Computed example of a mutant assay.
Amino acid sequence: MTAGNDFDPDHPPELFSARLTPHRSLNRVGFLVVMAFVSVLSFAAGVVFLLMGAWPVFAFFGLDVLAIYWAFKISFRYAKAYEEIHLTPSELYVRRVSHRGHVVEFTFNPLWVQLDRKIHAEFGIERLYLVSKGRRISIGSFLGADEKASFSKALMTALQAARRGVTYNPLH
């Protein structure tokens, strides 16, 4: 037997693997550009009001810049959250990590798990759930409707492959 067609029952083949992360359209460089623009604009407007004698307005422009900075930092902190989903013929494993690093793990038998989709007529897929033996967990809550549709199609295909079982082809 060659290494190319070895079958190890302790490590079944992975049928599906995904890491879901929240979408963030602004990277670090973009953040620095936006903050520089807001800071320069606020400083210029604040100086105009300062020269007119309305010095408290200058301080409020500074507070606005701090508020925008704080909002971006919170957004970047929440971007650290992710979900990992791994499917083998004998196990569906979901690992959810929050932005604070808290980990929650779920394990399902792929023969019993169902993918439930909550669909809105106008907006598409709103929610995805894994349902098995009375347990129902939400997955991919931060994905957009098109991303949820693509993800659910790929996961359903993999779940169907898991239900068919492992196929061993000694020729490959």
Rank of each mutant, 00 (worst) to 15 (best):
A36Q: 06
S141T: 04
A54M: 14
G124Y: 03
R95K: 15
L50R: 02
F151R: 05
R127C: 00
L26Q: 06
H172Y: 06
S42F: 08
T2K: 11
A18N: 06
F108H: 15
F16C: 11
L41M: 06
V57P: 05
R28P: 00
P22S: 05
G165Y: 01
A145C: 01
A67W: 02
A161D: 07
S132G: 02
F61R: 00
V97M: 12
Y168F: 15
P56R: 10
R163N: 01
S39N: 06
F58I: 04
A162N: 00
I85G: 14
N169V: 09
L32P: 01
T21Y: 07
L115G: 12
Q160G: 06
V48N: 02
G140S: 04
Y82S: 11
G124I: 05
F37H: 10
I119F: 08
G62T: 03
V47N: 01
F142L: 05
Y69L: 03
A158S: 12
P56N: 10
F123W: 04
V65E: 00
I68E: 00
L130T: 03
F31Y: 12
P12S: 11
G53Y: 08
G4S: 13
Q114I: 11
H11A: 14
V113F: 09
L155D: 06
F76P: 06
Y69V: 00
V166A: 04
R100W: 12
M1W: 05
L41N: 03
W112Y: 15
V104I: 13
A44V: 08
K148M: 03
G4E: 14
P89V: 08
W55D: 09
A149C: 00
A81P: 10
D8S: 13
F37W: 05
A149R: 09
V40S: 04
R95V: 12
A44H: 01
N27H: 11
L111A: 15
P56I: 10
N5L: 05
L32G: 05
V131E: 05
S90V: 13
P22N: 07
V65T: 01
L111W: 14
R77D: 14
S141V: 02
F142M: 10
M156D: 13
S98L: 08
T157Q: 12
P22M: 08
I74G: 05
L143A: 01
M35L: 15
R135I: 06
E147F: 02
D10P: 01
G165K: 00
S17A: 11
V104W: 07
T2G: 15
